[in-house]
Write a protein that binds this DNA or RNA. Structure first.
Lengths: 155, 155
DNA sequence: GTTAGTGCAAACCTTTTGCAGCTCT
DNA sequence: AGAGCTGCAAAAGGTTTGCACTAAC
């Protein structure tokens, strides 16, 4: 995929049919700031086309994943076992998920690329995709948990 | 959990009841070389106790995960959406999964710890668990794919 | 016009839950 | 004895499939 290219352009180049439904879904994925799961994407898409079916969402996501146009995330299964999706247009990053409030931060540091390189060398492995997810507690939740603990002991 | 301690000892110390079923499951998890999913563990356990129920397997795994005694893996969902489990007794490592043959290698390099440290510092985050999974093609499959491609063009 | 894509319904796979009875401590 | 655990059956959550119809190229 050319850098900065939208998913739609990439698909068109591959000769994939651009239906009304796909245009809606791809726009949402391209523009969304959040990490979307199938159900959330479905609900957003229905806002634009109430007839659009949930199955079409799954089929579209599957196609995009197979084509390497989106990455599939689990976000530590923090909110259930559904998958989340994001375009691959961004630089590789790790997802840091707060297990208490669900906030997701993205880490772009050099250790990721370094690890990737080491794995390729060490195993003669050809990496197609990589996923790092970290679960724990964000700064704010650490504070709040400390406060609650204080209250708890008084009671 | 004390280093080198078996899961069973750790549970006993916590006052968790050690039933016949749990002993079977914990032995299997402790001794298994592979990454077990619930179904595989269930089948192995049934070999030792044909009455043992699948639900017990799920409940035991959930308890171990909640107690931080096992890690839950997805192995890039290579063979479906089930989860895999392994004891936490080993040093942290990344899982490198061949998308063609399913082989799993483990990477123990220093880049992992380095990334963990950077995330803690950068976000003031308290890491509880971390998971790195890499999908791609192992050396052998790369070779075989190259050969098949050669054949394919002749035909 | 052809073929890929859609919607609908129904199935599928993995995991969880409610409840009565059993068992570990 | 009694809380905690198990088995069974049933449901839930997330995703996929078969098929007839529709729309993109």
């Amino acid at each position: 995929m050319a850098a900065g290219e939208r998913i739609q352009d990439s698909l068109k180049r591959q000769g994939v049919r651009l239906t009304r439904q796909r245009r809606i879904l791809l726009d949402l994925i391209d523009e969304s700031g959040e990490h979307l799961d199938a159900e959330r994407l479905y609900l957003l898409a229905r806002g634009k086309d109430p007839k659009l079916n949930r199955v079409t969402v799954y089929r579209t996501l599957k196609m995009l994943k197979a084509g390497g146009l989106v990455d599939e995330l689990d976000l530590m299964h923090h909110a259930g076992d559904q998958h989340y999706y994001e375009t691959r247009r961004k630089q590789e990053h790790a997802h840091v998920v707060c297990l208490r409030c669900g906030a997701v931060e993205e880490y772009f540091g050099p250790a990721l690329a370094e690890m990737r390189r080491q794995i390729e060398v060490a195993f003669g492995f050809e990496i197609v995709m990589a996923r790092t997810e970290v679960g724990g507690y964000c700064g704010r939740c650490q504070t709040e948990m400390a406060q609650e603990k204080g209250k708890g002991t008084k009671q």
